[in-house]
Simulated scan of single mutants.
Amino acid sequence: MNGIPRWLRWSAALAIAIATSAHAAPDTIRIGVATAGGGDPVTWGGSPGGVARVNNWLEEEFKASGVKVEWLFFKGAGPAVNEALSNKQIDFAYQGDLPQIVGRSNGLKTKLLLVSGARNNLYLVTPTPSDIRSIKDLRDRNVSIFRGTNGHLVAINVLAANGLAERDVKGVNLDVGSAQAALVSNGVDAAFGGYEWFKVRDQGLAKVVYSTQGQDPAFTRQASLLVRSDFEQANPAEVQRVVDVFVRAARWSSDEKNRDELFRIWARSGTPVASWAAEFDQQQLAVRNSPLVDDFIVARYKAVVADALKLKLIRREVSIDDWFDTRYLKASLKKQGLEDYWTAFDAKGQPKKTGSSIASR
Protein backbone atom coordinates (compact mmCIF):
# COMPACT_ATOMS: atom_id res chain seq x y z
CA MET A 1 0.00 0.00 0.00
CA ASN A 2 2.93 2.34 0.75
CA GLY A 3 3.87 2.31 -2.92
CA ILE A 4 0.48 3.60 -4.00
CA PRO A 5 0.12 7.39 -4.06
CA ARG A 6 -2.19 8.74 -1.35
CA TRP A 7 -4.40 10.52 -3.89
CA LEU A 8 -4.93 7.24 -5.78
CA ARG A 9 -5.90 5.41 -2.58
CA TRP A 10 -8.37 8.17 -1.78
CA SER A 11 -9.81 8.00 -5.31
CA ALA A 12 -10.22 4.22 -5.08
CA ALA A 13 -11.87 4.49 -1.67
CA LEU A 14 -14.22 7.18 -2.95
CA ALA A 15 -15.16 5.08 -5.98
CA ILE A 16 -15.93 2.10 -3.73
CA ALA A 17 -17.99 4.28 -1.41
CA ILE A 18 -19.97 5.70 -4.32
CA ALA A 19 -20.59 2.25 -5.81
CA THR A 20 -21.66 0.88 -2.45
CA SER A 21 -23.97 3.82 -1.87
CA ALA A 22 -25.48 3.52 -5.35
CA HIS A 23 -26.43 -0.10 -4.73
CA ALA A 24 -27.56 0.23 -1.13
CA ALA A 25 -31.10 -1.00 -0.56
CA PRO A 26 -33.71 1.68 0.07
CA ASP A 27 -34.94 2.14 3.63
CA THR A 28 -38.57 1.89 2.52
CA ILE A 29 -40.42 0.53 -0.48
CA ARG A 30 -43.64 2.47 -1.06
CA ILE A 31 -46.48 0.97 -3.07
CA GLY A 32 -49.42 3.11 -4.18
CA VAL A 33 -52.77 1.44 -4.83
CA ALA A 34 -55.42 3.16 -6.92
CA THR A 35 -58.32 2.57 -4.57
CA ALA A 36 -59.35 3.71 -1.13
CA GLY A 37 -59.43 0.09 -0.06
CA GLY A 38 -60.88 -1.02 3.25
CA GLY A 39 -60.35 -3.20 6.29
CA ASP A 40 -57.74 -3.14 9.03
CA PRO A 41 -55.05 -3.06 7.84
CA VAL A 42 -56.32 -1.43 4.67
CA THR A 43 -56.27 -3.76 1.68
CA TRP A 44 -58.02 -4.26 -1.64
CA GLY A 45 -59.45 -7.03 -3.79
CA GLY A 46 -59.59 -8.11 -7.41
CA SER A 47 -55.82 -8.39 -7.69
CA PRO A 48 -53.25 -10.95 -6.56
CA GLY A 49 -51.54 -7.95 -4.99
CA GLY A 50 -54.27 -7.98 -2.34
CA VAL A 51 -53.22 -11.52 -1.39
CA ALA A 52 -49.62 -10.42 -0.94
CA ARG A 53 -50.85 -7.50 1.15
CA VAL A 54 -53.05 -9.53 3.51
CA ASN A 55 -50.46 -12.29 3.95
CA ASN A 56 -47.60 -9.81 4.52
CA TRP A 57 -45.53 -11.58 1.87
CA LEU A 58 -43.65 -8.46 0.86
CA GLU A 59 -42.97 -7.54 4.47
CA GLU A 60 -41.61 -11.04 5.07
CA GLU A 61 -39.50 -10.88 1.92
CA PHE A 62 -37.71 -7.71 3.04
CA LYS A 63 -37.69 -8.21 6.80
CA ALA A 64 -34.20 -9.68 6.96
CA SER A 65 -32.90 -6.83 4.81
CA GLY A 66 -34.30 -4.24 7.18
CA VAL A 67 -36.38 -2.69 4.39
CA LYS A 68 -39.80 -1.40 5.39
CA VAL A 69 -42.77 -1.90 3.06
CA GLU A 70 -45.33 0.89 3.04
CA TRP A 71 -48.73 0.65 1.32
CA LEU A 72 -50.59 3.83 0.38
CA PHE A 73 -54.21 3.77 -0.77
CA PHE A 74 -55.74 6.55 -2.84
CA LYS A 75 -59.44 7.40 -2.80
CA GLY A 76 -58.79 9.49 -5.90
CA ALA A 77 -57.81 6.27 -7.73
CA GLY A 78 -55.56 6.43 -10.81
CA PRO A 79 -55.28 10.23 -11.13
CA ALA A 80 -54.23 10.54 -7.48
CA VAL A 81 -51.65 7.78 -7.93
CA ASN A 82 -50.20 9.65 -10.90
CA GLU A 83 -49.77 12.73 -8.76
CA ALA A 84 -47.97 10.67 -6.13
CA LEU A 85 -45.69 9.19 -8.80
CA SER A 86 -44.95 12.66 -10.14
CA ASN A 87 -43.99 13.85 -6.67
CA LYS A 88 -41.93 10.69 -6.04
CA GLN A 89 -44.05 9.85 -3.03
CA ILE A 90 -44.34 6.22 -4.13
CA ASP A 91 -41.99 3.78 -5.86
CA PHE A 92 -44.47 1.25 -7.27
CA ALA A 93 -48.02 1.85 -8.45
CA TYR A 94 -50.95 -0.50 -8.90
CA GLN A 95 -53.54 1.14 -11.15
CA GLY A 96 -55.64 0.72 -14.28
CA ASP A 97 -54.73 1.12 -17.93
CA LEU A 98 -56.19 4.53 -18.75
CA PRO A 99 -54.64 6.49 -15.85
CA GLN A 100 -51.34 4.75 -16.58
CA ILE A 101 -51.53 5.97 -20.17
CA VAL A 102 -52.50 9.47 -19.05
CA GLY A 103 -49.54 9.52 -16.69
CA ARG A 104 -47.17 8.44 -19.43
CA SER A 105 -48.56 11.08 -21.78
CA ASN A 106 -47.83 13.68 -19.12
CA GLY A 107 -44.21 12.64 -18.89
CA LEU A 108 -44.19 10.20 -15.97
CA LYS A 109 -41.15 7.95 -16.29
CA THR A 110 -42.31 4.46 -15.36
CA LYS A 111 -41.95 0.84 -16.45
CA LEU A 112 -44.79 -1.64 -16.61
CA LEU A 113 -43.64 -4.83 -14.89
CA LEU A 114 -46.55 -7.26 -14.86
CA VAL A 115 -50.33 -7.53 -15.00
CA SER A 116 -52.17 -7.82 -11.69
CA GLY A 117 -55.87 -8.02 -12.44
CA ALA A 118 -56.86 -8.59 -16.06
CA ARG A 119 -60.24 -8.44 -17.80
CA ASN A 120 -62.06 -6.58 -15.03
CA ASN A 121 -65.74 -6.25 -15.84
CA LEU A 122 -67.82 -3.09 -16.08
CA TYR A 123 -71.46 -2.77 -15.06
CA LEU A 124 -74.27 -0.27 -15.39
CA VAL A 125 -76.50 -0.02 -12.35
CA THR A 126 -79.66 1.94 -11.63
CA PRO A 127 -81.97 2.46 -8.67
CA THR A 128 -84.25 -0.55 -8.24
CA PRO A 129 -87.47 1.12 -9.50
CA SER A 130 -85.78 2.73 -12.52
CA ASP A 131 -87.30 2.42 -16.00
CA ILE A 132 -83.82 2.16 -17.54
CA ARG A 133 -83.47 -1.29 -19.08
CA SER A 134 -80.41 -0.97 -21.31
CA ILE A 135 -77.52 1.26 -22.33
CA LYS A 136 -79.66 2.84 -25.04
CA ASP A 137 -82.03 4.20 -22.39
CA LEU A 138 -79.29 6.46 -20.98
CA ARG A 139 -79.77 9.29 -23.44
CA ASP A 140 -80.22 12.60 -21.56
CA ARG A 141 -79.99 10.82 -18.20
CA ASN A 142 -77.70 11.75 -15.31
CA VAL A 143 -75.02 9.07 -15.33
CA SER A 144 -72.12 8.69 -12.89
CA ILE A 145 -68.79 8.02 -14.62
CA PHE A 146 -65.57 8.16 -12.59
CA ARG A 147 -63.51 10.11 -15.10
CA GLY A 148 -59.83 9.38 -15.54
CA THR A 149 -60.12 5.79 -14.29
CA ASN A 150 -59.84 2.65 -16.36
CA GLY A 151 -63.63 2.29 -16.24
CA HIS A 152 -64.11 5.67 -17.94
CA LEU A 153 -62.84 4.62 -21.34
CA VAL A 154 -64.70 1.30 -21.31
CA ALA A 155 -67.90 3.16 -20.45
CA ILE A 156 -67.39 5.41 -23.46
CA ASN A 157 -66.82 2.40 -25.70
CA VAL A 158 -69.91 0.66 -24.35
CA LEU A 159 -71.95 3.78 -25.03
CA ALA A 160 -70.55 3.94 -28.57
CA ALA A 161 -71.41 0.28 -29.20
CA ASN A 162 -75.00 1.20 -28.39
CA GLY A 163 -75.18 4.28 -30.60
CA LEU A 164 -74.44 6.87 -27.92
CA ALA A 165 -71.58 9.29 -27.31
CA GLU A 166 -70.54 10.57 -23.91
CA ARG A 167 -72.16 13.91 -24.74
CA ASP A 168 -75.51 12.14 -25.16
CA VAL A 169 -75.67 11.53 -21.43
CA LYS A 170 -75.41 14.00 -18.58
CA GLY A 171 -72.18 12.71 -17.13
CA VAL A 172 -71.43 13.27 -13.45
CA ASN A 173 -67.87 12.70 -12.26
CA LEU A 174 -68.10 10.81 -8.95
CA ASP A 175 -65.76 8.47 -7.12
CA VAL A 176 -67.02 5.08 -5.96
CA GLY A 177 -68.39 6.11 -2.57
CA SER A 178 -69.99 9.29 -3.88
CA ALA A 179 -71.58 7.42 -6.78
CA GLN A 180 -73.16 4.90 -4.45
CA ALA A 181 -74.55 7.61 -2.21
CA ALA A 182 -75.91 9.52 -5.22
CA LEU A 183 -77.56 6.48 -6.76
CA VAL A 184 -79.38 5.27 -3.67
CA SER A 185 -80.65 8.81 -3.02
CA ASN A 186 -81.74 9.19 -6.66
CA GLY A 187 -79.15 11.89 -7.21
CA VAL A 188 -78.19 10.18 -10.47
CA ASP A 189 -80.22 7.97 -12.78
CA ALA A 190 -77.51 5.39 -13.37
CA ALA A 191 -73.84 4.66 -12.70
CA PHE A 192 -71.03 2.79 -14.39
CA GLY A 193 -68.75 0.86 -12.09
CA GLY A 194 -67.24 -2.45 -11.08
CA TYR A 195 -67.71 -5.24 -8.59
CA GLU A 196 -68.38 -2.76 -5.76
CA TRP A 197 -71.96 -2.44 -7.00
CA PHE A 198 -72.91 -6.03 -6.21
CA LYS A 199 -73.00 -5.21 -2.51
CA VAL A 200 -75.47 -2.39 -3.18
CA ARG A 201 -77.49 -4.68 -5.44
CA ASP A 202 -77.63 -7.41 -2.80
CA GLN A 203 -78.93 -4.86 -0.30
CA GLY A 204 -81.86 -4.26 -2.64
CA LEU A 205 -80.78 -0.69 -3.37
CA ALA A 206 -79.76 -1.09 -7.01
CA LYS A 207 -80.08 -3.37 -9.99
CA VAL A 208 -77.55 -4.31 -12.68
CA VAL A 209 -78.95 -3.61 -16.13
CA TYR A 210 -75.78 -4.18 -18.16
CA SER A 211 -72.60 -6.24 -17.77
CA THR A 212 -69.51 -6.81 -19.90
CA GLN A 213 -69.24 -10.36 -18.58
CA GLY A 214 -69.03 -12.86 -21.40
CA GLN A 215 -68.82 -10.17 -24.05
CA ASP A 216 -65.95 -8.95 -26.21
CA PRO A 217 -62.83 -8.87 -23.98
CA ALA A 218 -62.08 -5.47 -25.54
CA PHE A 219 -64.78 -4.20 -23.15
CA THR A 220 -62.74 -5.18 -20.11
CA ARG A 221 -60.30 -3.22 -18.01
CA GLN A 222 -56.69 -4.12 -17.21
CA ALA A 223 -54.64 -3.27 -14.13
CA SER A 224 -50.93 -3.71 -13.64
CA LEU A 225 -47.90 -2.90 -11.54
CA LEU A 226 -45.63 0.00 -12.48
CA VAL A 227 -42.32 1.11 -11.05
CA ARG A 228 -40.71 4.54 -11.28
CA SER A 229 -37.89 4.31 -13.81
CA ASP A 230 -35.33 5.99 -11.58
CA PHE A 231 -36.21 3.68 -8.67
CA GLU A 232 -35.84 0.63 -10.94
CA GLN A 233 -32.48 1.79 -12.23
CA ALA A 234 -31.15 2.35 -8.72
CA ASN A 235 -32.69 -0.76 -7.13
CA PRO A 236 -32.95 -3.64 -9.62
CA ALA A 237 -32.49 -6.32 -6.95
CA GLU A 238 -35.38 -4.95 -4.90
CA VAL A 239 -37.59 -4.66 -8.00
CA GLN A 240 -36.92 -8.32 -8.75
CA ARG A 241 -37.93 -9.31 -5.23
CA VAL A 242 -41.17 -7.33 -5.47
CA VAL A 243 -41.99 -8.97 -8.79
CA ASP A 244 -41.18 -12.39 -7.32
CA VAL A 245 -43.76 -11.84 -4.58
CA PHE A 246 -46.42 -10.59 -6.99
CA VAL A 247 -45.85 -13.63 -9.22
CA ARG A 248 -46.09 -15.93 -6.21
CA ALA A 249 -49.40 -14.25 -5.32
CA ALA A 250 -50.61 -14.58 -8.91
CA ARG A 251 -49.85 -18.32 -8.87
CA TRP A 252 -51.74 -18.84 -5.63
CA SER A 253 -54.65 -16.69 -6.83
CA SER A 254 -54.88 -18.63 -10.10
CA ASP A 255 -55.38 -22.03 -8.44
CA GLU A 256 -59.06 -22.99 -8.50
CA LYS A 257 -58.74 -24.90 -5.24
CA ASN A 258 -58.05 -21.52 -3.58
CA ARG A 259 -61.16 -19.82 -5.06
CA ASP A 260 -63.17 -19.67 -1.83
CA GLU A 261 -60.20 -18.61 0.29
CA LEU A 262 -59.21 -16.02 -2.32
CA PHE A 263 -62.63 -14.40 -2.12
CA ARG A 264 -62.47 -14.45 1.69
CA ILE A 265 -59.11 -12.67 1.58
CA TRP A 266 -60.42 -10.05 -0.84
CA ALA A 267 -63.52 -9.64 1.33
CA ARG A 268 -61.33 -8.14 4.05
CA SER A 269 -61.35 -4.97 1.96
CA GLY A 270 -65.08 -4.58 2.70
CA THR A 271 -66.42 -6.10 -0.52
CA PRO A 272 -68.35 -9.27 0.43
CA VAL A 273 -67.49 -12.76 -0.76
CA ALA A 274 -70.78 -12.83 -2.70
CA SER A 275 -69.63 -9.83 -4.74
CA TRP A 276 -66.41 -11.55 -5.75
CA ALA A 277 -68.32 -14.70 -6.62
CA ALA A 278 -70.56 -12.63 -8.89
CA GLU A 279 -67.63 -10.77 -10.49
CA PHE A 280 -65.78 -14.02 -11.24
CA ASP A 281 -68.82 -16.11 -12.11
CA GLN A 282 -67.98 -18.69 -14.82
CA GLN A 283 -64.53 -17.18 -15.28
CA GLN A 284 -61.24 -18.97 -14.75
CA LEU A 285 -59.03 -17.57 -12.03
CA ALA A 286 -55.92 -18.26 -14.11
CA VAL A 287 -57.23 -16.00 -16.88
CA ARG A 288 -58.13 -13.12 -14.59
CA ASN A 289 -55.06 -13.37 -12.34
CA SER A 290 -52.35 -14.09 -14.92
CA PRO A 291 -49.34 -11.75 -14.65
CA LEU A 292 -48.40 -12.20 -18.32
CA VAL A 293 -47.88 -9.18 -20.53
CA ASP A 294 -49.08 -11.07 -23.61
CA ASP A 295 -50.33 -9.95 -27.02
CA PHE A 296 -53.79 -9.26 -25.63
CA ILE A 297 -52.47 -6.93 -22.93
CA VAL A 298 -50.22 -5.07 -25.35
CA ALA A 299 -53.09 -4.71 -27.83
CA ARG A 300 -55.43 -3.40 -25.14
CA TYR A 301 -52.92 -0.78 -24.01
CA LYS A 302 -52.39 0.34 -27.60
CA ALA A 303 -56.17 0.56 -28.04
CA VAL A 304 -56.43 2.66 -24.89
CA VAL A 305 -53.82 5.05 -26.31
CA ALA A 306 -55.74 5.35 -29.59
CA ASP A 307 -59.11 5.84 -27.90
CA ALA A 308 -57.79 8.30 -25.33
CA LEU A 309 -56.19 10.36 -28.08
CA LYS A 310 -59.34 10.32 -30.19
CA LEU A 311 -61.46 11.40 -27.23
CA LYS A 312 -58.88 14.03 -26.22
CA LEU A 313 -58.24 12.42 -22.86
CA ILE A 314 -54.56 12.77 -23.75
CA ARG A 315 -53.08 15.50 -25.92
CA ARG A 316 -50.45 13.64 -27.90
CA GLU A 317 -49.55 10.23 -29.24
CA VAL A 318 -47.91 8.00 -26.62
CA SER A 319 -45.40 5.31 -27.55
CA ILE A 320 -45.60 2.24 -25.36
CA ASP A 321 -43.21 -0.05 -27.24
CA ASP A 322 -40.41 0.61 -24.77
CA TRP A 323 -42.69 0.75 -21.72
CA PHE A 324 -43.20 -2.94 -21.02
CA ASP A 325 -40.18 -4.23 -19.11
CA THR A 326 -40.77 -7.93 -18.57
CA ARG A 327 -37.18 -8.91 -17.73
CA TYR A 328 -38.09 -9.24 -14.06
CA LEU A 329 -41.28 -11.15 -14.82
CA LYS A 330 -39.47 -13.62 -17.07
CA ALA A 331 -36.78 -14.16 -14.45
CA SER A 332 -39.42 -14.77 -11.80
CA LEU A 333 -41.39 -17.20 -13.97
CA LYS A 334 -38.22 -19.18 -14.59
CA LYS A 335 -37.15 -19.11 -10.96
CA GLN A 336 -40.55 -20.35 -9.76
CA GLY A 337 -40.98 -22.93 -12.53
CA LEU A 338 -44.02 -21.13 -13.97
CA GLU A 339 -42.91 -20.49 -17.55
CA ASP A 340 -45.72 -22.69 -18.91
CA TYR A 341 -48.28 -22.23 -16.14
CA TRP A 342 -50.42 -19.43 -17.63
CA THR A 343 -51.93 -19.34 -21.10
CA ALA A 344 -50.84 -16.47 -23.33
CA PHE A 345 -53.59 -14.81 -25.38
CA ASP A 346 -53.53 -13.25 -28.82
CA ALA A 347 -54.46 -9.66 -29.57
CA LYS A 348 -58.18 -10.52 -29.71
CA GLY A 349 -58.11 -12.22 -26.33
CA GLN A 350 -58.16 -15.80 -27.59
CA PRO A 351 -55.68 -18.49 -26.43
CA LYS A 352 -52.55 -18.65 -28.55
CA LYS A 353 -52.28 -22.00 -30.27
CA THR A 354 -48.53 -22.38 -30.15
CA GLY A 355 -46.00 -21.31 -27.58
CA SER A 356 -46.37 -18.34 -25.29
CA SER A 357 -45.77 -14.72 -26.02
CA ILE A 358 -44.98 -12.11 -23.44
CA ALA A 359 -43.50 -8.78 -24.32
CA SER A 360 -39.74 -9.02 -24.74
CA ARG A 361 -39.02 -5.35 -24.26
Rank of each mutant, 00 (worst) to 15 (best):
N2V: 07
N2P: 03
R6S: 11
A12R: 12
A15Q: 14
I18D: 03
I18F: 06
T20A: 15
A24E: 14
R30N: 07
R30G: 04
V33F: 06
D40I: 10
D40E: 12
V42P: 05
T43V: 07
W44E: 10
G45N: 08
G46E: 07
P48T: 02
G49Y: 00
G50S: 05
E60W: 01
E60Y: 00
E60A: 14
A64C: 08
G66F: 06
G66W: 08
K68N: 12
V69T: 06
L72N: 15
F73T: 08
G76W: 01
V81K: 02
L85D: 01
N87K: 15
K88F: 06
I90M: 04
D91I: 11
D91C: 09
D91R: 08
F92H: 00
F92Y: 05
Y94P: 02
Q95M: 15
D97A: 15
L108K: 08
L108V: 11
T110I: 10
T110F: 00
L112I: 05
L112K: 03
L113I: 01
L113D: 00
L113Q: 00
V115D: 05
V115E: 12
S116C: 08
A118I: 04
R119T: 09
L122R: 04
Y123P: 09
Y123N: 09
L124V: 15
T128C: 06
T128G: 05
R133G: 11
V143G: 04
V143R: 03
F146Y: 14
T149D: 07
V154Q: 09
V158R: 02
A165F: 14
V172Y: 03
N173I: 13
L174A: 08
V176M: 12
S178H: 14
A181K: 15
V184Y: 09
S185L: 10
V188I: 12
A191T: 06
G194C: 11
Y195L: 09
R201I: 13
A206H: 10
K207I: 04
Q215G: 13
D216A: 10
R221T: 14
Q222P: 13
Q222C: 09
Q222D: 13
S224P: 04
L225S: 04
N235V: 08
P236Q: 04
A237Q: 14
Q240S: 01
V242S: 00
D244P: 00
F246P: 00
F246V: 04
D255G: 08
L262Y: 02
F263W: 07
F263D: 11
R264K: 15
R264H: 10
V273I: 10
E279V: 05
L285E: 06
V287P: 01
V287S: 05
N289I: 01
N289S: 06
S290R: 00
P291E: 00
D294G: 05
D295N: 11
L309T: 07
K310W: 03
K312W: 06
R315P: 07
R316H: 14
E317S: 15
D321R: 08
D321M: 07
D322G: 15
F324K: 03
D325K: 01
Q336G: 02
G337M: 05
E339R: 05
E339S: 11
P351R: 02
P351H: 06
G355S: 02
S356T: 06
